[in-house]
Design a protein around this nucleic acid. Structure first.
Lengths: 345, 345
DNA sequence: CTGAAAGCGCTTACAG
DNA sequence: CTGAAAGCGCTTACAG
């Protein structure tokens, strides 16, 4: 219990200066009300004198089993949708004194597992999964995290999530509306471009197109949905997909996909919306600026981030307990010039 | 030293199962070569049997004074430039087994100080400052972090950084080139729109314009450079700035600024580039997609992120020691349709 | 090659 | 109201 002369300032340094025990310093730091005000005063002065700022989160965490760290798993922050969610999460976390560890997984299961295991070694208090490609390997790690007391919340779609808290939007329904919009405007050959058939968006697209008695056309792009990957895959596959199926409209998985569709189509001389209408999801700021502006589905990105953090806090404080909570937020189709055809009158 | 029955699996649990001491388990975990291979085998099996994944970073960090955590301070991840840098940093960090704590500070000093203090409580091994609005209060915290052994690296401009490592670009020079491009194309009334006069970009703009014997015009927008803020400030100030000064071209601090200039100008019926040329910095993907496509200065965002992480690793490994290191990467002016006027022949 | 022991910087019953 | 002590989960000289 000797006080070291050198190195870092700890509560022991402060205790020595104040002439009290480190326990008392700790109590002052933790706003405990069982410290005499004279003692508190002395400790406060010693804190100042030593230049002690904040107790080590690591040491505190080791003792209390609370790290104040949140893990945020996104597909790709370079995608403006995830960037906006990340910003919102970070703001809410900072306000709550929580730190955010960011991880990108490109939507891949092995990557996601690794990142979740990273969160595990950090003993995070909560995890935000945006999105949650809920495959088995990931789910297993998530369960382990949950069993250690971490609050897990899925942000985005995945309406069939039953195990963890969800702050989401009904993208299946939104996709149905999108398709109906296109049909109302005269489109009969409507394609879908996205990562896979397992999303709510594709399900909604498929349902609506089939209900209208129309054929479905899907282009699924494998691999990581990064700009570089999408760009090269689209260059290879998109023109053939459009002309081969004689599509007049395409529903894109997100604005991030729409951007590349727009880029490739423009480069190939395919007129948007003259020859092809395009509509995506996320309604990121950029969608307003493209040539032509891109129709999209508004998703409350900022609100979702805030609610996710709030939910984690409530779980940690025991204000929310029991089975999974579901918050489903509203979406809205935003038509812009990238969609051709007049609405029915 | 009793082994707990309940709760989490620690190296003690594993040690008991393997019939060895926890020190031995630790040695196996740390690839120490002074473990008999038979013992190692038994420990490995016990590890598996107990479902022990990774040692707690917190406990390890407390002991070794190495957390494997990197702090990344950006202005705003919702800005595609920072998002791309963040993605690159995260990739490099993941590969090195490091965790990245993200913090946004909106370029404000108080915010920045708070975020840096958060990094301090986490005992981060390294800090990436992108950008580094090197005011005194921040610098003080950064020094404290450095004195505790954290490797600090500034990413971006700020060529006058003398104290910390820098992975940057010469944006002063790039701004000079940008202005020269505009002058060559016949522009004589060239304005600047940015956050403040203290940037390398503005310095370069000013230098080049003055050297050409032309008047300088600056619009500095106060407050956080978020989309919402920039949007409303631009709506108020930009039209008057352009018409009042009869500008034919504007140099924007970044694509993020250009986007809002484009949006406001378009909404007000100001033709780009017919009535106003616009050029920014960062060359984010979006700049290719806007109407019209935006001229910009290419900055090697991905490379900068990678180099910053690499530099931190080298510092931590003692492969780089001594005074501040400077890596200055090349930039390139990318002209696009948002700039009017033919080059001289 | 292996274990017992100390200690990283905190918190918190427990006793007084 | 305050302090001594134990302990969170690890690592690492030290001794054998």
């Amino acid at each position: 219990m000797t006080v070291r002369e050198s190195g870092r300032v700890t509560i022991h340094t402060v205790a020595k200066v104040a002439g009290v025990s480190s326990a008392t310093v700790s109590r002052v730091l933790n706003q405990s009300d069982l410290v005499a005000s004279a003692t508190r005063e002395r400790v406060l002065q010693a804190l100042e004198a030593c230049g002690f700022r904040q107790p080590s989160r690591l040491a505190r965490a080791l003792r209390t089993n609370r790290t104040g760290i949140l893990g945020l798993l996104v597909e790709n922050v370079a995608n403006p949708y995830f960037a906006t969610v990340a910003r919102s999460v970070d703001d809410a976390a900072q306000q709550a004194g929580l730190a955010v560890v960011l991880a990108n997984d490109d939507g891949s299961a092995p990557g996601g597992v690794e990142r979740l295991e990273l969160f595990e070694t950090l003993n995070v208090d909560g995890v935000i999964l945006a999105p949650w490609a809920g495959d088995d390997r990931r789910r297993q790690v998530a369960r382990r995290l949950a069993s250690r007391g971490a609050a897990i919340v899925v942000v985005g779609d995945y309406l069939d999530e039953k195990e963890f808290d969800l702050v989401g939007v009904d993208l299946r329904r939104a996709a149905v509306e999108v398709v109906q919009c296109l049909i109302e405007r005269g489109h009969r050959r409507i394609g879908y471009v996205g990562p896979a058939a397992t999303t709510d968006r594709f399900a909604g697209y498929q349902e609506a197109v089939r209900d209208a008695g129309l054929p479905t056309f899907a282009l699924f792009l494998p691999g990581a949905p990064t700009t570089a990957n999408l760009a090269s895959l689209m260059e290879q596959e998109l023109p053939g997909f459009i002309s081969g199926q004689r599509l007049t409209a395409v529903v894109a998985h997100s604005d991030f996909y729409s951007f590349e569709i727009l880029r490739v189509a423009t480069a190939r001389g395919i007129k948007i919306p003259g020859e092809l209408s395009v509509i995506g999801f996320d309604n990121t700021r950029v969608a307003e600026l493209t040539a032509p502006p891109l129709a999209s589905v508004e998703i409350p990105k900022v609100e979702m981030g805030q609610m996710a953090v709030e939910l984690i806090r409530q779980r940690l404080d025991g204000k929310v307990t029991g089975g999974p909570v579901r918050h489903i937020l509203p979406t809205r189709v935003i038509l812009r010039e990238s969609v051709a055809g007049a609405p029915p009158t």
